[in-house]
C-alpha cells in the first residue's frame, strides 16, 4: 500500500504522478506525448485537465487509468502503484477501482439500460440478479428511474451520458475518468452532466478527473491542471484563478 503524502494544506491525495514520460513510436517519428509530468489530484475533488488539442491530455488520462503503459516515472492511484505492474494486475486494478466515461458514451446499443449499467458488476463477478438490482438503484441516482428496459438508441445524448455515468459509478470506483464528456452535448446538457459529475466527486474517498477542451464547462471544476506540449504547466486552485490568469 503506497501511503500518499498529504499536501501542505492537509488535503489527502488520490493521485500522485511524478516524472512520467510516454513516447509513441521510435526514432525520427517518435512523439513525446508526455514529458516528465508531475501532478496531484485530491480526494473528494473534480480535477479538470485542460489544454489545446494534441497536448497530451488523453494520454495522461490513459496512464492514470491504467489503460496505457508508460516508460518512465511513478504513478500512485489511491493505494496502487502503477509503475511496473503486471498486465493482469493492471486489468484487475481497472476492474475494481476505475469508472470510465467516454466522449461517445460507448453504451452497447443492443442491450437495455439496466444491462448496460450492470456490465462493470458482471465483469467484477457479481450475479446477474444482484448486478441488476444495484444497476437499477444507480440509474435512479442519475434520474433515469423507470427507463431500465429502454435501449440506449432511444435516448438523447444527455440521457445516454447519464447512463454512462451510472455505468461508471455502479461498482463504486474510487477513480472516475472522463474524456471529453461534454463535447458531444449542447451547452445546457453539458452543464447538467458536469453538475452531476461534481456531485459524484463529493465523496471522501473518490476522485473525478475530467479531460476537456470544452471551455464552456471549465467553471464546474474544483481545480484545473493546464497542459501544454506534454507537460502540466500550471495548477489553478479554482476556476476563478484560471479565469483571472487568462484575463477573462
Amino acid at each position: 500500500m503506497a501511503n500518499l503524502p498529504k499536501t501542505e494544506a492537509g488535503h489527502e491525495l488520490a493521485i500522485h504522478v511524478r516524472g512520467v514520460s510516454k513516447t509513441f513510436g521510435q526514432g525520427e517519428a517518435a512523439i513525446h506525448a508526455l514529458k516528465d509530468v508531475d501532478f496531484d489530484a485530491r480526494k473528494g475533488e473534480m480535477l479538470m485537465i485542460v489544454g489545446p488539442s494534441g497536448c497530451g491530455k488523453t494520454t495522461l488520462l490513459s496512464v492514470i487509468a491504467g489503460t496505457l503503459t508508460f516508460e518512465k516515472g511513478e504513478i500512485d492511484v489511491f493505494d496502487a502503484a502503477l509503475q511496473g505492474m503486471k498486465q493482469r494486475a493492471i486489468t484487475e486494478f481497472r476492474k475494481r477501482n476505475v469508472g470510465f466515461i467516454f466522449q461517445q458514451f460507448n453504451l452497447i446499443p443492443t442491450i437495455n439500460l439496466l444491462e448496460n449499467v450492470s456490465v462493470p458488476l458482471l465483469i467484477n463477478g457479481w450475479t446477474r440478479r444482484r448486478a441488476e438490482e444495484k444497476a437499477a438503484a444507480t440509474l435512479a441516482v442519475v434520474g433515469l428511474a423507470g427507463r431500465e428496459k429502454d435501449l440506449p438508441t432511444m435516448m438523447s445524448g444527455g440521457q445516454q451520458q447519464r447512463v454512462a455515468i451510472a455505468r461508471a459509478l455502479v461498482h463504486d470506483p474510487r477513480l472516475v475518468i472522463c474524456d471529453e464528456p461534454t463535447s458531444a452535448l449542447d451547452k445546457d446538457t453539458g452543464g447538467h452532466i458536469m453538475e452531476l459529475l461534481r456531485e459524484v466527486a463529493r465523496h471522501p474517498d473518490r476522485c473525478v478527473v475530467v479531460v476537456t477542451h470544452d471551455s464552456r464547462v471549465f467553471k464546474y471544476s474544483d481545480r484545473m491542471a493546464e497542459m501544454e506540449d506534454g507537460r502540466v504547466e500550471r495548477i489553478h486552485e479554482s476556476f476563478d484563478q484560471y479565469a483571472n490568469k487568462q484575463g477573462l
Binding site: 484487475e92 486494478f93 476505475v98 470510465f100 460507448n106 462493470p120 465483469i123
Partner: peptide
C-alpha cells in the same frame, strides 16, 4: 469500440 470499452473496464 465496445469491446475496447469492456476491456478498459477491466474485462
Amino acid at each position: 469500440r465496445h469491446l475496447g470499452a469492456l476491456k478498459a473496464m477491466g474485462a
